[in-house]
Each structure stands twice: as C-alpha cells, then as structure tokens.
Design a protein around this nucleic acid. Structure first.
Length: 309
RNA sequence: GGGGAGGUUCCCGAGCGGCCAAAGGGGGCAGACUGUAAAUCUGCUGUCUACGACUUCGAUGGUUCGAAUCCAUCUCUCCCCA
C-alpha cells in the first residue's frame, strides 16, 4: 500500500507552508488539492505559494490548466493519483495538501467512484431550460420520480445537485461505498485549526494583502487571457467579488469586504467538511510558535507511528 | 429659537391596540456535500428548571381587560427654516 500524508484545513490556516516544511523534513513532494490553484494566471486570489516559498519542493497540480479548460474533481482524482504514483516511484513521500474537501476526499477515500457519468454541460443547459419552462421544482419532481433514493438525499432547493442527479441519468446510490473512511492508501491525515477569531482575523489580513499585491489587476488580466467571467475559474473566491468592480458596479472597499466575508463563510464550510472525518489528527495553530514547530510536531508523530523512518 | 422625522431584539429594517419574543434581510453558530465544490444547499439564533414560565421594542408615568403599537413628560438622533 502506498503511503500518503494529507494536510488539510481552512484557508489561511497555514497548511501550504506546513506542508513545505514537512516535505523538507521527510523527503516529500506536494500535491495541491485546490480547485482554483490548478488554473494558470490565478495566483494572488488563490494564494498560490510563490517560487521562493516552495523552497525547491516540487508542487503538483498547480498551474496545470488555462482559460480554455473547465477543470473538475474527476480530472483531479486521476491527476492526483498519477502524481502520487510518480512521487512514490521516485522514492519520495507524497503530501496531499489543500482545502478543497471534495478534491481531497476523492483521492483519500476508497471507492469514490466518480466515473459513472461524466459532467455534461450541454445536458445541464437543456435541463436548466426545462426548469425555466415548467417552473421551479419541476426538475426535482422528475428526479424524485426517476431516482427516488437519490432525490431523498438532495434538498429540493439544491438546484445544482438536482441538475447533477439528472445529468448522470443513473441511480448511483447503490454504488456508494459502505465504509466511507477507508482509504486506498496507507494514510496519515492532519488538520490545521485556529481559534475562530484568529482565523477570521487572518483571513481579513490576507485579503487586504491580496489587494496590495494587485488582485484587481490580476482579475482584469485573467479576463484578457480569455477566462470566462461566468466560468468555474472566475467563480472562485477572490475573482467573482472583483468582477463587478471591473464593470464599475461596486467600490473597492465594498468588494474587499465582500471577499472577506465570503472567505470567512468558506473557511467555515471547510471546517464543517473536515471535522466529520474521524481520521484527522488536529493541530491548533495557536499552540505553536511558528510553522516550523507545527511541521516538526507532525514529523515527530509520523516517526513515533513509524510511518516514516 | 421655530418646524418636521424618528429611536424596535448583535446590525439593518417591518410592525402601529390583542393572532408579537415581534415579518424580512444581514451577521453569528451548526449541518449537508460522490465530476460546477473557493460551488450548491439546509437548520438554529431573547432567557430559563423549556408542550410552560420569565425579561425585551429610548426612559419614566398614564389610558386600557390587554400596549412595541394610544396619551404625557423627559431624553437622544436626523432633516429643514432661523
């Protein structure tokens, strides 16, 4: 069984840097599990680690696609599995690090069978048109009729999942894994936590910093690179809040505050996502003097467990 | 100094005699999550010894069976005229 270390946590909890420190200590390489960092040109808003920050540690799955691509979990799952194989083959330790919960789970968990049906934008559009034509709730009705089991699990207002449910045109419930928390890897998973107040404070600071680094210019540049203002990439935090600014529909301060707020909400969702995974060993950032100490604590734990020698 | 508008639960904001612990929104908290996931969606949100009780709608005093809603005084805020 291949070994895999995962480091997860909400944005601005310092996971990227902890992962780098850890990689240095245990001869590792990092696989980013981040749905937005895969896009080229989106650097500031996604808080990508800079070249100097990586300290020579190789990072996978950052900057792998451009404006023409709509990336998604399915591709990520494959790409990440390949990266793990590649790193392992080199005799190094793969470290999966990031805050996109679904992305993380798709590689970390057994039987995450995404393969049944691919995403189908055309079909989604057709379905959306139907809903418009027949009124709200129409699609849910169809879903309930065709796949009652699946419909039971989806709230009638969760439009996106309803679309997905119908798009698949298959009752995938039967294919769900029974044991959700078993892994195809010899897995060690660590979570970074922060007192809520400090977490939010950190987010505010990070957002201020993004604006100073030129976030607005970056979004404008992304548009000229061909990124679709309505596409997945620019729907990400840090981009969708800036777009109205570029169109003159809001003020800088307002956009900044919106981004801070949305990021706090996002961090909360991340916490909710990861909290339910009983395998995660949590570290409170506030208990440590710096990043290096956290990674050392993790390193020590891994040694104790004989996960690394 | 004169005239007008108004002070509602963490915030904004409805309510204008009983159906009001008080609409709605925001925020906060909690949750869901299997190819859009930095997305999408849900629940809770005065206190308590909790199918009942208690304290809230600027303050005090009144009218009334009953007030956030009516009256009086006070107080604060905003706008207009001087």
């Amino acid at each position: 069984m291949k070994k895999l270390i995962a480091i997860v946590g909400p944005t601005a909890s310092g996971q990227s840097n902890v992962a780098i420190e850890l990689a240095k200590q245990c001869n590792g390489e990092i696989i980013s599990a981040d749905s937005a960092q895969v896009y080229k040109g989106l650097d500031i808003g996604t808080a990508k680690v800079s070249n100097s920050e990586t300290q020579g540690i190789k990072h996978y799955l950052i900057d792998i696609v451009g404006a023409e691509t709509e990336y998604n979990v399915g591709e990520f799952q494959k790409d990440a599995q390949n990266a793990i194989d590649e790193i392992t083959a080199k005799g190094k330790m793969p470290i999966l690090c990031g805050g996109s919960g679904l992305y993380v789970n798709s590689v970390i968990n057994e039987g995450y069978d995404l393969g049944l049906t691919q995403g189908d934008p055309k079909k989604r559009k057709e379905l959306a048109a139907l809903e418009k034509e027949h009124g709200q709730g129409y699609l849910y009705g169809i879903l309930a009729e065709k796949f009652p089991n699946r419909a039971k699990k989806i709230h009638e207002n969760d439009y996106q999942r309803i679309l997905r449910g119908l798009e698949m045109d298959a009752d995938i419930d039967e294919n769900y894994t029974v044991n959700r928390w078993s892994s195809p890897y010899d897995l060690q998973i660590f979570g970074l936590q922060k007192e809520r107040k400090l977490l939010y404070q950190g987010i505010d600071e990070r957002v201020d910093n993004m604006f100073e680094l030129g976030l607005i210019e970056e979004v404008a540049a992304a548009l000229s690179m061909g990124y679709n203002p309505k596409g997945n990439a620019l729907m990400a935090l840090g981009y969708k809040e800036i777009l109205p600014l570029l169109y003159g529909n809001t003020e800088v301060e307002e956009a900044k505050n919106t981004l801070k707020l949305n990021t706090r909400h996002f961090a909360k969702r991340q916490l909710t996502w990861f909290r339910r995974d009983p395998r995660i060993i949590w570290y409170d950032v506030g208990d440590f003097a710096n990043i290096a100490e956290i990674s050392f604590a993790i390193f020590t734990k891994l040694k104790q467990d004989k996960f690394i020698i």
